[in-house]
Amino acid sequence: MKRIFMFALLMMACVGTTGGELVSFTATASGPSDVTGHKLDFVSGRGFHVVLTSATLHVGAIYLNQSQPVSGAQATNCILPGTYVAEETTGRDIDLLDSTAQVFPDYGDGTRTHARVAEIWLKGPGSINDPNDSTPILQLAGTVDVNGQTRAFIGTLTIGQNRLATVSDPSQPSAHPICKERIVSPILVDLTPTQNGTLALSIDPRPLLSNVDFSQLHQFSSDPPVWGFVDDSSDQPSVSLFEALRSSGDVYRLRWSP
């Protein structure tokens, strides 16, 4: 009886939980599932026939957040400590013309907490606030039919000084920090990380080019004739591509596999 009593006491003391769970998981990324032969042949939103033969995106990090952003709530800070559910902090280049899962180098970490929003950080290995980060974020190559002519195009986008917004209000010199240009958010998700699960990021490059007016591409060379995207916001194709890259609409999809 005495032993039972002591056992009961011990059990009383040693059971229970603080709630939640810390988890480790695998993160992967891939291009769209309908990629065939390492190329993507499609008609853009503006009616251009495009054949992508190379598309690489550098994803610096992925974060899952438990907070649904309220309009205006994220007008100030890029990072909101205390709201993050899970993270994959080791970046890699993703071949967007490969539909197989490309595994991030390190495991991700997080908690078993419901996530409502994802953030994709488009950055190199340095700080998210480093204005001089020259890491190529997006690299494209392919052909497009313009006015009955097939043009080869290329494009390399970086996010650095070339994307810094000018300060319009001197009382708020950091209202538009470079980190805001690098974080794609909010990407709506509805998932709960679990131990040893997989966070699968799917990236479709087609929406990136959906609104690009390929007729306005800058001609880089005439022999051979090559057109391309300039790495700033000086023309419509580049602005459109960069805006689409940071759009949380149709480009990025995240799902959780236990």
Binding site: L80, P81, S174, P177
Partner: peptide, 18 residues
Amino acid sequence: FTGYLLDVQSPIQSPHDQ
């Protein structure tokens, strides 16, 4: 205790990293 976590950029501050 936290390293470089809490020094979030505020709009009224001059640009800075953590």
